[in-house]
């Protein structure tokens, strides 16, 4: 991991294509501008993480956990 310090208005480049600009700092909130090619997906980390966690939880499901048209669901 790289840790660097930037001030408002300063930028970071990731490779040739991606530029991150620190636009505004206000208390504990930072507004960030990202310029990247359209094919680079950009998501808030917590959304990506939440979907990942739901996938993992779903993968722990057993057959008997799902209601069946033939057997009444457990309730």
């Amino acid at each position: 991991m790289l840790v660097i310090t930037r001030k408002a208005g300063e930028q970071i480049c990731l490779g040739d294509d991606v530029t991150i600009t620190v636009m505004e700092i206000s208390g504990s909130t930072v507004r960030i501008g990202i310029e990247a090619p359209a094919e680079v997906p950009i998501y808030r980390h917590e959304i990506w993480d939440a979907v990942k966690e739901e996938n993992r939880a779903a993968a722990r499901t057993n057959i008997k956990d799902l209601p069946s048209a033939k057997a009444p669901p457990r309730s």
């Binding site: 739901e54 779903a58 499901t61 956990d65 799902l66 457990r74």
Partner: peptide, 9 residues
Amino acid sequence: CVVRASDSL
């Protein structure tokens, strides 16, 4: 869409 099952519906 992915479903998360549980003991109760």
